[in-house]
Computed example of a mutant assay.
Amino acid sequence: MKVLVTGGSGFIAAHVIDSLLQGGHNVVFTARTASKADHILQNHQNIPKDRLSYVIVEDIAKENAFDEAVKSDPPFDAVLHTASPFHFNVTDPKKDLLDPAIVGTTGILKSIKSYAPSVKRVVVTSSFAAIVNPKQSPEVYDESCWNPVTMEEALKTDPSTAYRGSKTFAEKAAWDFVEKEKPNFDLCTANPPLVIGPVVHQFDSLTSLNTSNENVRDMIQGKFKDGLPPTRVALWVDVRDIALAHVRAMERPDAGGKRFFVTAGFFTNSEVADIIKKNFPDLVSKLPDNYDAQSKEFPYKIDNSRSNEVLGLQYRSLEESITDLVKSLKAAGA
């Protein structure tokens, strides 16, 4: 299949591209700058140009931003839309988070409908942020759950609420678009919680690491020597598993029209510290000598069975994920 991947230089997207190429697909990805795009190409120097290339989309929140990107000869069969901001350096929630997420998502769907009639499947990277209810957890989280956040709360509360709002409204806008516009394609969404694992995308320095890996970077740099912080997001998935979930959601006919809650389960910061100490003796001095094992009693359960049954996912262990992440951070100079 010929596939367009948006936001190709992002943490998840870089692994999605790897997974697509391993599966024999041809990939075109979007990037904001040529230097970010060229870094991805350098990671795949043995892949010919007709199997991996890029187009520049400078601002996904602009009107018609993707019109040219979706045009292709030969035409695209599928689009994986991973481009959406995930950070808490927010000065203007609307401009920094909400518009790029919502307008970027509806914008690419409009462009596909208008200019890429060959596309039959679109997979959108959503998030557990669009599922979670921070005020009142249900007994079990699954794909039927939606974050009840309002636009007013997203604009006025705090950066994490704005982020959750951006993912919720963007995903809802995607489902609404497909229902109302009846386009040439069907839709799936992948809804991961905290995504951790080895880094293969370009980042300027270890200070500009993707948000979800920062906690482990801080651990191995000794920033928590005096004590581990509480575990903020208790659910996780390895980046290679969420990447494969995107590819399988694209490939498998019965995935169409479905959300996928893609998570390996619960974790705590004390488990992460234990794994680092066990596998990296040279880093033991960076971590606290003693810490209490943080409770694994959580106020809710999870049901990720759809990802197993429809996508055939078998999740990596936390130990494999953290070990590979630390190796990649050390290679990058941490």
Rank of each mutant, 00 (worst) to 15 (best):
325 L>S: 11
285 S>H: 08
32 R>C: 09
111 S>W: 07
278 K>N: 13
88 F>L: 10
272 V>W: 10
54 Y>T: 01
49 K>G: 13
326 V>H: 03
236 W>I: 06
119 V>A: 03
304 N>T: 15
51 R>L: 11
1 M>N: 03
122 V>M: 00
300 Y>V: 11
38 D>T: 15
206 L>W: 12
285 S>K: 06
215 N>C: 10
175 W>M: 00
226 D>V: 11
253 P>F: 07
297 E>C: 10
178 V>C: 04
213 N>L: 10
298 F>A: 07
236 W>P: 10
275 I>C: 03
223 K>I: 15
188 C>R: 02
190 A>W: 03
110 K>E: 15
317 S>P: 07
87 H>D: 13
223 K>L: 14
281 P>C: 03
322 I>A: 12
276 I>S: 06
309 E>H: 08
104 G>P: 05
242 I>Y: 07
83 A>K: 10
88 F>K: 03
60 I>L: 02
268 T>N: 14
176 D>W: 06
211 T>Y: 15
287 L>G: 05
187 L>P: 00
48 P>Q: 14
309 E>F: 12
290 N>D: 13
158 D>C: 07
330 K>Q: 13
242 I>N: 02
280 F>Q: 07
324 D>P: 09
165 G>L: 09
73 D>H: 15
275 I>V: 02
103 V>L: 15
122 V>W: 00
257 G>W: 14
40 I>H: 06
211 T>V: 15
133 N>F: 00
132 V>L: 11
280 F>M: 13
132 V>W: 09
2 K>W: 12
40 I>G: 10
173 A>I: 14
238 D>C: 09
300 Y>T: 11
26 N>S: 07
226 D>P: 09
179 E>H: 05
17 I>K: 03
104 G>D: 07
131 I>L: 02
87 H>R: 10
297 E>H: 14
333 G>I: 11
196 I>T: 14
